[in-house]
């Protein structure tokens, strides 16, 4: 009876479902389970450094990335292991930000806690604020007084509509900035609908589909841990890796410039289809002194790296 088995396998072999872990996590994140102290700390940082951060309103003259260097104080505050209070009033949203890669700027995903409300609107506002990870930046910098560049997001039957603030999309936004919005909103909605930009209620150009993942996403990314998480003993790291990559190596880096690996291992990749695949790794922290480290993943085994560029993603973590 193997013929039917083969036929059924083949009939759906080209079905490559979109990654909906973001949407599922958003729907299942209850305040008690998803308490993420780092968010509160990061939010405080934004307020605390507002005076020193150059918030860019100049979208009309081309987006000015707010570089990590401008977010002084992020690191210390991000590591604060504060107890979370009042989390009932917040929710988790997926938010894509821009970071460097050997192939030029690419999108990376964070899960960030925002005030409870409509997930689409929460995610839209989140990407107009600085990311939690200082390695990233947003192409939709917070305006000073000019209001938000992206005002509101609404789920329709066949599109996700975004009402623009006082900007000219064609002049303001490079392709990757538009994709930052598309990826974020599709993830928050859990649906792959094209995004339609509206200006004063009138469509500004055609609806935009998500670009291919391999064109805009970094080939490897970390979903967990979040920036600044604190762990004791061990933790499970998770993320996604592009179809072309066969190895994800993780390491815990220490030292003044996070140059020396004090632990390393290989992640398990759930390969088997096209598209991006999930990876997981159990990271044992025993033997590490309490303190701050960098958790890093890269696509090539650095000891054998002879082929092609190595892609990485990093998170700062604390060990108790």
């Amino acid at each position: 009876m193997n013929d039917l088995h083969d036929l059924f396998e083949d009939a759906v072999a080209d079905v490559e479902p979109a990654d909906r872990l973001d949407a599922i996590r958003c729907r299942t994140s209850s305040p008690a389970q998803a308490a993420r102290p780092w968010f509160r700390a990061a939010a405080l940082t934004v307020v605390g450094t507002a005076a020193t951060v150059t918030l860019v309103a100049a979208l009309g003259s081309g987006p000015q990335p707010t570089g990590p260097a401008e977010h002084g104080g992020h690191e210390e505050a991000g590591h604060a292991d504060r107890p979370a209070e009042d989390d009932a009033a917040t929710m988790l949203v997926p938010a894509y930000f821009v970071g460097a890669s050997p192939n030029g700027p690419r999108l990376y995903r964070e899960f960030d806690r925002v005030p409870a409300g409509d997930p689409l609107q929460g995610a839209l506002e989140r990407i107009q604020e600085p990311p939690s990870d200082p390695d990233y930046r947003t192409l939709w910098a917070v305006g000073t007084g000019a209001g938000l560049a992206l005002e509101s997001a609404t789920l329709r039957d066949t599109t996700i509509d975004v009402e623009l603030g006082p900007i000219d999309l064609d002049q303001a936004a490079p392709e990757l900035a538009v994709q930052q919005v598309v990826y974020t909103l599709q993830a928050a909605a859990g649906r792959q609908l094209p995004v339609r930009f509206l200006s004063n209620g009138r469509p500004s150009g055609s609806p935009v589909d998500a670009a291919r993942q391999d064109e805009v996403l970094n080939p490897v990314s970390i979903s967990d841990p979040a920036e600044g998480n604190t762990y004791a003993g061990s933790f499970i790291a998770r993320g996604r890796v592009g179809a072309g990559e066969r190895t994800v190596e993780w390491s815990i880096l220490d030292g003044p410039d996070a140059q020396s690996a004090v632990a390393r291992g290989l992640a398990t990749i759930d390969a088997g289809g096209g598209g991006f695949a999930p990876w997981t790794a159990e990271v044992d922290l025993s033997g590490l002194a309490p303190g701050t480290y960098v958790f890093s993943v890269s696509t090539a085994d650095v000891r054998l790296s002879a082929y092609g560029p190595t892609f990485t993603d990093t998170r700062t973590i604390s060990v108790r």
């Binding site: 079905v15 490559e16 479902p17 909906r20 872990l21 998770r238 759930d270 289809g273 999930p278 997981t280």
Partner: peptide, 9 residues
């Protein structure tokens, strides 16, 4: 997350 990684597709 484990179930998702192993069985989503």
């Amino acid at each position: 997350e484990q179930l998702y990684a192993a069985h989503w597709r």
